[in-house]
Computed example of a mutant assay.
Amino acid sequence: MTVSANTQAILLLTARFGKSDSGANKPLTPKEYGRFAEWLRFQSLTPERLLSGDLQELLQGWQDKTVTVERVGALLDRGSALALSMEKWLRAGLWVMTRSDPDYPRRLKQHLRSDSPAVLFGCGNRALLNSGGLAVIGSRKVSQDDLVYSSRIGEMASNAGGSIVSGGARGVDETAMLGALGAEGTAVGVLADSLLRACSSGKYRRALMENNLVLVSPFNPEAGFNTGNAMARNKYIYCLADAALAIHSGKKGGTWSGAQEDLKRGWVPLWVKQTDDPEAGNKALIAAGAMEAPSDIGAVSIETFFQVANEPSRSDEDLFSAAPSSVGVVPTEIGAPESHAPLADALTAVEEDRPVVSGGDLGAIVSDT
């Protein structure tokens, strides 16, 4: 795999390479990078341009409380750390995707706008990131009945020609994904941690080799579990799908907060499995506006999850536009391509890739800062 100079610059600005990336010079958040990228676009600058020349001169006129010129300079000065990390990741078969790549998930840009991740790390069939599907989410510790239900949902989605989108965590997430893969279907795993380890796991090896699986993360591929990252990745699971099914939720935690956020933002239709478990938050989510999914797997129709049409929303607007949109994304079948209405993506304009260099040239490129 090759990595362009522009991708390297975006990585330097937004990615973590170790525990030392903290404090005043921590990598830019999606929102911070969104502001910075928009300003660069108006200056006819690309991130790549910041790797050479006088940074103070290039960024003359840029003012931001948190994204200071000094912070940008410190982040761009991490060339050695980037080179070492990239060499390790590329050797392990990982790839890196930025918002300028043509196969970057369009749904993330549509739904999250400036909050869409600047960089995605992954392994496997990246084309699956634009295939949509059913997001299946749930708690890590659930009953055996819920695990059977999760596995069968994965199988049924596969048999219907759809993909499963989930978080890869043990319990509902992993079981639904493995259910789909076991039925020769496809799955998208949005991981909050340990991407590098997951990509070499035996349970996923065959599916990765057969292009039936993609594992992706916006976080450092070697990062361990972090509650904040786990919460942050929830929105990516919903936004990569056409509809969502919560099989079991507690009354707090990741499944609960992610479902509430989807109900608030209206990203995709949310279904919640009926349950009599008094410790579950399922009934509360249904009362808050989620639709009821049958508790009996025999009564489930996968197609039903996709028959609720979304009203046109801000998710279809230009990434930085406040103008109303008249185009909605309405899936007509499981895995159907999303609407490709024109979307003037400001971030893509500023991040357009330049001539490609090999992974072995990483150190030479970034050392010019």
Rank of each mutant, 00 (worst) to 15 (best):
A5I: 11
T7P: 00
I10C: 04
L11T: 05
G18F: 13
G23K: 09
N25M: 12
L28N: 03
P30A: 05
F36K: 08
F42Q: 06
P47Q: 05
P47F: 02
G53C: 07
Q56K: 14
S85W: 02
S85H: 11
E87R: 14
L94M: 14
L94Y: 04
D103A: 01
R106Y: 05
H111D: 12
L112W: 08
V119W: 00
G122P: 07
R126F: 03
S131G: 09
S131R: 15
I164G: 05
S166A: 13
G171C: 09
D173S: 05
T175F: 00
L178P: 03
G182S: 10
G182P: 12
V188Y: 01
L195T: 06
L196P: 12
A198V: 01
A198H: 14
S200I: 02
K203I: 15
N211K: 12
F225D: 11
N226D: 12
I237Y: 04
L245V: 11
I247H: 03
S249A: 15
K252R: 15
W256N: 14
A259Q: 03
R265N: 12
V272K: 08
A290T: 10
P294M: 09
P294V: 11
D296R: 13
I297M: 10
A299M: 11
V300T: 07
T304S: 14
A309D: 08
N310M: 13
D318Q: 09
S321C: 09
S321M: 01
A341V: 04
P342N: 07
P342R: 02
L343N: 10
V357N: 12
S367H: 08
